[in-house]
Amino acid sequence: MSAKRNYGSLYAAPQGLWLLLFFAAPLVIIVAYSFMEKGLYGGVEPRLSLDAYRALANPSLLLVAFRTLLVSLVATVLTLIVALPCGYSIARSGNQSLRLFLVIVPFWTNFLVRIYAWIAILGNEGFLNDALRALGVVADPVQFLYNQWAVVLVLVYMYLPYAILPLFSTIDKFDFTLLEAARDLGATKLEALRLVLLPNIKGGLVTAILFTFIPIFGAYAVPLLVGGKDSYMLGNIIADQVTKTRNWPLAAAISMTVTVLTGLAALVFLFRSRKPAPQSVEEPAAPLGVAGTSAVPSGGAR
């Protein structure tokens, strides 16, 4: 072969530069800020301090962290429950492009406008309450808004496309004759889906979980606008520390802790889900003790 120069790294340079400038550099700034003293009027003083990390042990902060975790878990699970059948039906339908297009269409509207649209739907004088009253289901308006369930509902709506797309793309690759084979071997419809389809689309599931759980964990605008007095989440605390209480180091320290924890969790999650090779039929069935992973490769177990 002639010595053809390899321009690969050159072509990749813009991406590297982009990440360096807009990901690595800001991250370094946040790390640095989290270890500095807070300025009296916002900002930081260039002196080393661990005050921000000490302040993390505050019980009310831990309560918010726990609440945020709970909301994120519930919202992620609900998102998956809705996204799975959506992804499945898109993958099996004849006009995939149109259906995918419809999944994307809401993105044309600004995020905040869509939140206000939900307020218009769920409000006491909103469309839903009007409809319920017109149908005589209720006499007085139902208080849908300004509580934890409104937050979960709008979060599920917002992040649904991020779960549908990866799920669709793995389900689309799935060999559906395997389901027929499972039925031939005596599995019920549900068993076939659970024992054959689910293990085979695990990659998509993992991506969907990461793409929904992580952004939901940092949610800010949704709890602010449709949440009630008990909907204060970590994202709101971080924003308030910067914009209201002038404690930038604490905001940075909370952000760092969340980033490190979610990063670690994502790594563990990815690592664990990589191990089993669901497609291989030869692999012996894993002991049922490893519950919770849904990684039981039971292709021929029955």
Binding site: L100, L165, D172, L270, S273
Partner: peptide
């Protein structure tokens, strides 16, 4: 893990993502 979007059959999802990025 295979990230779902990096699979071989990205054909249908990819334009959708492009539309998204384009609008952004």
């Amino acid at each position: 893990m295979k990230t779902a979007l990096s699979g071989r059959r990205v054909g249908a999802a990819f334009p959708a993502v492009l539309v998204l990025v384009g609008f952004a």
